[in-house]
């Protein structure tokens, strides 16, 4: 009876611990690795990070304001291939595609008029990959400075 109890508790601890642990690591990853790369832009303080699987896409909607310089940074844990991202306006026009810029992880821009933009992020599946898809943390962070 006692054996079963201990076994149950240990399996439960194991099952519960994995996502919590990965999420906590995602937070540390975003804070330590991605945020520092925003300098000299000031990080806005918002947290957008999640565990994504190869092949998975994410979208982020945000309003950007005129007379402000912005840096958007999209960072992926190093077990993933590079992260693809595009910036799209409200009419669906692609304003930036990092595939056309050597898979750059960041993009600096400013606006003449305020716009709501969409950041489309994809974790690509590496060419010729035969093994199981991998999962890793992807963070989207924004920095700003006075324009």
């Amino acid at each position: 009876m006692m054996k079963k109890g201990i076994l149950f508790i240990s399996i439960l601890a194991l099952v519960i611990s994995i996502p919590v642990n990965l999420n906590a690591q995602c937070k540390q990853f975003a804070k330590k690795s991605c945020k520092s790369g925003l300098a000299p832009y000031q990080h806005d303080g918002n947290y957008h990070a999640a565990l994504l699987i190869e092949g998975e896409e994410a979208e982020l909607y945000k309003t950007f304001y005129s007379d402000t310089d912005y840096r958007v940074g999209v960072c992926g844990a190093n077990n993933l291939a590079y992260i693809e991202f595009k910036v799209v306006d409200s009419n669906g026009k692609v304003l930036y595609d990092n595939k056309l810029h050597d898979s750059e992880w960041k993009w600096d821009f400013k606006l003449e008029s305020s716009q709501q933009l969409k950041i489309v992020v994809k974790v690509p599946v590496p060419d010729g990959q035969v093994e199981e898809p991998r999962e890793g943390c992807v963070a989207i962070m924004f920095g700003f400075k006075e324009g």
């Binding site: 601890a13 994995i18 642990n21 940074g73 992880w105 991998r134 890793g136």
Partner: peptide
């Protein structure tokens, strides 16, 4: 395992530092 982080190799892939690996 609930209390500790997994560790692994490191590589710089953006940002300004080295990214910890934590894969599943």
């Amino acid at each position: 395992m609930a209390g500790c982080n997994r560790s692994g190799s490191k590589a710089d892939k953006g940002g300004n530092g080295e990214f910890d690996v934590f894969e599943s």
